[in-house]
């Protein structure tokens, strides 16, 4: 109603524009206040604790602590695990998303509902059940014993942690890709095939580039929780693999070393911010809108 010349109250367009904006800002005030107090200020606290010691004096000790081989190793491991898990998720999710997007609309909503349903079982329980399956005397080992084999030690193996991440976050990768694929006009593919492309080439040159926005938002949605997880690694490794999330969690909840914990969180946040910006470079305008 900002630029309507026949508005019941006649005002000059510019004044009217300002008034509407003022009213919108008024409506937004509670939200802005809330966001500043509970989003911006807490992040400033993270910054403050990163650069101060226990007495509140400025220090870079906490950042230097991040340079120790132990912490660098944790960061490195977290990134490697998260990258591998994200790649596996993408490879598994894309064909599934393609299959789901080809379903009729009511079957499609049922398929997505079924996909999300396991996510409603608490994530801790799901991970713990995985541990029960692969435990030293878990279901798989029970089956192996029945077949006459010896006990196999699964807990602590890298692939089990990757499996845990993929299992817990796969739906996050499938959903955005399904959304994007459903929006692509099937006529585009038909046209490509009519013009002599094989179905595979049509997929490679038409469908795949058009689904880039979904892929990028899926990658972000899986990578972020994977790189910062602390529960999956500690449960499925039996405590032998420590990721950066585990370090942060214990810094805050067991050692109450807020300074070092903040430094690790701060760097983790910067790391994720950079990866999102890099991802956006690969994406087109649409995906930027999805992320911004």
């Amino acid at each position: 109603m900002t630029s309507n010349p026949v508005s019941p109250v006649k005002k000059s367009p510019i004044r009217h524009f300002r008034l509407a904006n003022l009213r919108s800002l008024g409506i937004l005030t509670p939200h802005i206040v809330w966001c500043v107090i509970f989003i911006v200020v807490p992040l400033l606290f993270v910054l403050y604790y990163t650069f101060t010691d226990r007495n509140g004096a400025f220090t870079t000790d906490n950042l230097q602590f991040l340079g120790t081989p132990e912490i660098l190793r944790c960061f490195g491991l977290s990134i490697v695990y998260a990258l591998v898990a994200t790649a596996v998720c993408l490879l598994l999710a894309y064909p599934l998303a393609l299959a789901i997007s080809k379903l009729k609309s009511n079957h499609q909503s049922l398929a997505t509902l079924l996909l999300m349903l396991p996510m409603w079982v608490s994530f801790i329980i799901r991970t713990y059940t995985l541990k029960n399956i692969f435990n030293d005397n878990g279901i798989i080992n029970q089956i192996i014993a029945m077949l006459g084999g010896g006990e196999v030690k699964f807990l602590g193996q890298s692939w089990l942690i990757i499996l845990g991440m993929v299992y817990d976050f796969l739906p996050y990768m499938v959903m955005p890709i399904v959304t994007v694929l459903t929006g692509i006009d099937p006529k585009l593919n038909e046209a490509a095939e009519d013009l002599g492309y094989s179905p595979f080439r049509a997929f490679l040159h038409v469908t795949l580039p058009l689904s880039r926005a979904g892929i990028i938002s899926g990658i972000t949605m899986v990578f972020v929780p994977c790189v910062s997880t602390f529960y999956i690694s500690s449960t499925l490794s039996g405590g032998t693999v420590t990721l950066i999330g585990d370090k942060i969690e214990s810094a805050f909840l067991s050692n109450s070393n807020f300074q070092q914990g903040s430094a690790m969180s701060f760097v983790l946040m910067i790391l994720i911010l950079i990866s999102i910006l890099v991802m956006n470079k690969f994406g087109d305008k649409e995906s930027e809108e999805l992320l911004a």
Partner: peptide, 17 residues
């Protein structure tokens, strides 16, 4: 920000506040 940030960072930042 809370949607993009890892949950653990959102959690600890509010804990600090």
């Amino acid at each position: 920000i809370p949607m993009m940030n890892p949950d653990i960072v959102t959690g600890i930042s509010m804990m600090l506040l």
